[in-house]
Amino acid sequence: MTALLQVSGVGKRFRGLVAVDRVSFTVAAGEIFAVIGPNGAGKTTLFNMIAGVLKPNQGSIAFRGERIDGLTPDAVCRRGVARTFQIVRPFPALTVEDNVVIGALLHRTDMEAARRHARDVLATLDLHDKRDIVASSLTLPDRKRLELARALATDPKLLLLDEVMAGLRPTETDRMVDILRRINREMGTTILLIEHVMRAVMALAGHMLVLHHGAPIAQGKPEEVVRDAKVISSYLGAEAAP
């Protein structure tokens, strides 16, 4: 497998405070990769550096062999990396379909083609019959899927998902897991998840990285990582014993 995303020694400091400390990992084309860690571990900072929101102080990020660190978010997206927001941000006054059409227009100039593509994506995400509803009147699970649909409509090679499971009930989580698996298998989209919900991560991820205080403490296949003593004490242990 070839490396789609290569994060090498990336670090970020805020006023001397180290948020992310020399993190390196590789996401292979076609896989689902998860980054986990307790609150404040630097997950979101790492995510924002890949998405182009923040510029790393050190290290480099390469996507398909080309450096993307320091690019603007829109430039990153145009190269094939689409993201979702942890707190969803649909375009509230537009219909569900128009929301997705805007994503579809990234690599399409013809409106009809964009509309057709948007409808296909909506069908994949079980939102097709809600396409004429205004986004602001959707329920949270629907909004989460809309957010995903919009990102997916840009035809990304890599999908960055910022806690898509947060706030979902277990049945909805299962539905989302199912959808993500389908996207990964059927469209061949590589997925990088940042996630809290361990059940979802275990079900989806082929590889994972555990962050603690901004530094990587374990990396590998999920089965191996959860047995790691450091991970259990710093993260899983704390979670398991509330």
Partner: peptide, 26 residues
């Protein structure tokens, strides 16, 4: 209003950050 540009505008009007995340050169 029905063009690509029009949709980019509406996206910016609704949420600039989200528009940027969808690859729009705001």
């Amino acid at each position: 209003a029905r063009s690509r540009l029009g949709h980019q505008w509406m996206a910016i009007r609704e949420d600039e950050t989200a528009a940027r995340a969808l690859g729009i050169d705001v």
